[in-house]
Computed example of a mutant assay.
Amino acid sequence: MGFERNPKVYHLKWQDGEYAGLEVRVRTVNMGQLLAMRTGSEGKDSTQVSVDYLAERIVDWNLTSNGVPVPPTLENILAEDDDFVLAIITKWSQAISGVSAPLPESSPSGEPSPEESVIPMAPLSASQAS
């Protein structure tokens, strides 16, 4: 019996910041495409390759302009601000690579360890030769 693989679709969500509420669904890339996104290929730099792959792989997004949905085409992606498109590519790349976003600065670091253990400890017995 063979194994049938279903390609991943990453659901990218922005919870806060400038793009809070943005949601983008993007299919994964193959290994060759991932390497091209990192290094560039065919005379294109890595950013241009990444934008091209984003346009090919994007399933949908909830972007609107004056209340009208903006289709996720290459033309519309290229018409957006660079920081917006790069934020999508960055989050997508992190999802593909399995990299989690850093914790926010206000993330609690946990309680400090107690100086003394509350578990009673007995000295180890002398080892017995077998």
Score class of each variant (00 low, 15 high):
residue 64 T to P: 00
residue 122 A to M: 08
residue 14 W to F: 09
residue 119 I to R: 09
residue 41 S to T: 07
residue 85 V to A: 05
residue 56 E to C: 12
residue 35 L to Y: 13
residue 82 D to E: 07
residue 13 K to L: 08
residue 10 Y to N: 03
residue 36 A to L: 01
residue 12 L to W: 05
residue 82 D to C: 02
residue 110 G to F: 05
residue 65 S to H: 13
residue 68 V to H: 09
residue 94 Q to L: 06
residue 78 L to G: 02
residue 128 Q to H: 07
residue 32 G to C: 00
residue 28 T to P: 00
residue 78 L to D: 12
residue 65 S to E: 12
residue 108 P to N: 06
residue 35 L to W: 10
residue 76 N to L: 05
residue 76 N to M: 06
residue 97 S to E: 12
residue 119 I to H: 04
residue 25 R to D: 14
residue 115 E to D: 08
residue 119 I to M: 09
residue 2 G to F: 13
residue 6 N to P: 00
residue 126 A to I: 09
residue 85 V to I: 14
residue 129 A to S: 14
residue 67 G to S: 04
residue 6 N to F: 05
residue 4 E to I: 14
residue 127 S to F: 08
residue 107 S to N: 08
residue 76 N to F: 03
residue 36 A to S: 10
residue 124 L to G: 02
residue 99 V to E: 11
residue 125 S to H: 11
residue 103 L to C: 01
residue 87 A to C: 07
residue 106 S to V: 02
residue 71 P to G: 01
residue 19 Y to W: 15
residue 127 S to H: 11
residue 31 M to W: 03
residue 114 P to V: 11
residue 31 M to P: 00
residue 13 K to Q: 14
residue 10 Y to T: 05
residue 9 V to D: 05
residue 21 G to Y: 06
residue 8 K to R: 15
residue 106 S to G: 00
residue 130 S to T: 09
residue 3 F to M: 14
residue 109 S to A: 13
residue 74 L to C: 09
residue 123 P to R: 12
residue 91 K to H: 10
residue 69 P to D: 03
residue 75 E to L: 08
residue 108 P to S: 08
residue 130 S to C: 03
residue 16 D to V: 10
residue 59 V to Y: 02
residue 76 N to A: 06
residue 15 Q to R: 15
residue 8 K to Y: 09
residue 13 K to G: 03
residue 87 A to V: 04
residue 102 P to A: 07
residue 86 L to A: 03
residue 34 L to A: 13
residue 78 L to E: 14
residue 63 L to I: 15
residue 66 N to V: 10
residue 85 V to Y: 02
residue 81 D to T: 11
residue 63 L to G: 02
residue 123 P to I: 04
residue 52 D to H: 12
